[in-house]
């Protein structure tokens, strides 16, 4: 029994080595271009299925490199007001786990390169059924999962089964993750490391770049995985500053705010893609200054 499990594990590992994932390819390409990835967060089904579909499909053209798609949950304990409201809007318009997976499947029919990472809380996955969820997510073309309330202590719940399905489990490291704990956080991490820039909820106060740069540098000493930075990044200027020393910059609440304040679905699409373009331009140019200085 144990021997069989070991073989399965080896097969998965070998697969991962021979076929590089969309996330690996994405980061490899960006490394050649010497620029960080722009990661966007939107809640699936916000504000409604149709608008959400249009928002999602337009993200790569607007300049997003990696898509984080939120699975709405009624009780998002780690989110600030903007993403809380987004989840409620999505749920009120009838969003479900099944529909979220369907969105990814539809997206994959026209885009086979942009990585899609599902982000959310464990309960909707647990209720869907972990094995069923991972099977459906892998089939739909999901590349990774970020599940806020599953620390490494519960790796057997989802993190390890996800690896069996070839889905990356993206771990959050935070300002409270001390040296003693870091190895545990990194142990089963894959895809990239998401550094939570400030202790708090999403959409909160902006991090100070100096402290952040030190934290990212410290993380690099312990992992070869790319490091994304998120929480509190709202503007093109912030994204550029943080993009100079991180491998990816995550913007969520600022985009979700556009949806809240939009006059219509069309307006939401225009505003979100507009802000994404601005952020993308800024992120693409953020290391050029450094290069000029060096040359």
């Amino acid at each position: 029994m144990i021997a069989i499990q070991d073989n399965t594990m080896n097969d998965t590992v070998n697969q991962a080595v021979t076929h590089s994932s969309r996330l690996e390819q994405c980061f490899a390409t960006l490394k050649q271009q010497n620029r960080p990835a722009l990661v966007s967060y939107l809640t699936a089904g916000d504000p409604d299925a149709d608008t959400s579909h249009r928002l999602l499909h337009g993200l790569p053209d607007a300049g997003v490199d990696i898509i984080e798609l939120g699975m709405p949950f009624s009780d998002p304990m780690a989110d600030g007001p903007a993403i809380q409201k987004a989840a409620l809007r999505a749920l009120e318009s009838g969003q479900t786990q099944t529909k979220t997976l369907e969105m990814v499947r539809n997206f994959r029919q026209e885009n086979s390169t942009t990585p899609v990472v599902l982000m959310g809380y464990y309960n909707p996955i647990y209720c869907y059924g972990v094995e069923r969820f991972l099977t459906d997510a892998a089939t739909a073309g999901v590349d990774g999962l970020i599940v806020v309330d599953l620390p490494p202590e519960h790796d057997e719940e989802l993190c390890q089964p996800a690896a069996q399905h070839g889905i990356d489990f993206i771990r959050l490291a935070t300002p409270t993750t001390d040296a003693r704990r870091l190895p545990k956080v990194l142990a089963n991490a894959s895809g990239f490391i998401y550094y939570v820039s400030v202790a708090g909820v999403t959409g909160g106060s902006a991090p100070t770049p100096e402290r952040l740069e030190n934290s990212v540098a410290h993380l690099r000493e312990h992992t070869d995985l790319p490091i994304a930075v998120g929480f509190g990044i709202r503007t093109a200027e912030q994204a550029a500053t943080i993009g100079r020393f991180s491998d990816a910059v995550v913007v969520g609440s600022a985009l979700v705010d556009c949806i809240e304040h939009a006059a219509s679905g069309d307006d939401a699409v225009e505003q979100v893609h507009g802000l994404v373009s601005e952020l993308a331009e800024s992120v693409r140019a953020c290391r050029e200054v450094d290069e000029q200085v060096i040359s």
Binding site: H154, T174, P175, T176, R181
Partner: peptide, 22 residues
């Protein structure tokens, strides 16, 4: 040791809180 009563209980919290909870 993991805070479990059978399959119930546990520590399903954000990473930021984990060091504090420990």
């Amino acid at each position: 040791a993991n805070g479990l009563f059978g399959s119930f209980g546990g520590r399903f919290v954000a990473e930021t809180l984990m060091p504090l909870i420990l």
